[in-house]
Amino acid sequence: MERQDKAQDAWVVGGHRFSSRLLMGTGKFQDAETMVRAVLASRAQIVTVALRRVGRIPREDDMLGPLGELKGITLMPNTSGARNASEAIRAARLGRELCGSPFVKVEIHPNPHHLMPDPIETFEAAKILAAEGFVVMPYMPADPVLAKRLEDVGCASLMPLGSAIGSGRGLATVEMLRLILRDARIPVIVDAGLRSPSEAAAALEMGCDAVLVNSAVAAAGDPVAMAAAFAQAVKAGRDAHRAGLMPQGGGTALATSPLTAFLSEEGQ
């Protein structure tokens, strides 16, 4: 399959190869040091960052200075705060300037409460950014038709939500995720809604290429330990997927044959 490299079990997004299947968000941590230690513990190779205006009084809360010095981590700016496509496009261009990376997580959520992504604005922004050469990774509702639409306009991956951001309700969209996975030609990353490592493992078991977590780590009792736990869960889930789950409610051989009796009467 074009979205996976079998031998190394690496996955490829936008022509870039990664071995870690856990992506980390860097928001909502109590301090920069914990965040950096959590990112290291997670072994994530892609971390998301946000863009904000510089305040009038220079602040010393630079969360990302230490991250920039870490080798082998790709910074992926998101477009959080954008309420429509044109704001997201602007944020993406600025993010590219700052991070020097073509990756962008397009996220557009006009409603400040549930933060559900706007499918129409997300599609418009993704279309334009993909044409500009960005590696577009859209945060999206778990909608199989939108998934194909986004794929068709050149997105590098799909990032359907497991449940609402920060809700910790896990893979509430599992049936829709199955449909998305079935037909996807680009990596599928479950983004948002996960609470526990077992949910991340379940996403990988069912064939998702990766997961992105933030709140589940940042708001955990011990964020660094939780990041490590997610790393193990993602690895276990992926290994389980490759190993092939045992059948559930499969079949056993049956002696009686009420449905297939007609086959023994062949009159050729």
Binding site: G25, T26, G27, K28, F29, A32, M35, T48, V49, A50, L51, R52, R53, V54, D62, M63, L64, L75, P77, N78, S80, L94, G95, L98, C99, I165, A192, L212, N214, S215
Partner: peptide, 10 residues
């Protein structure tokens, strides 16, 4: 003039 920086985000 507008100035932007990176902050933590998900």
């Amino acid at each position: 003039v507008e100035l932007f920086r990176l902050v933590g985000g998900g």
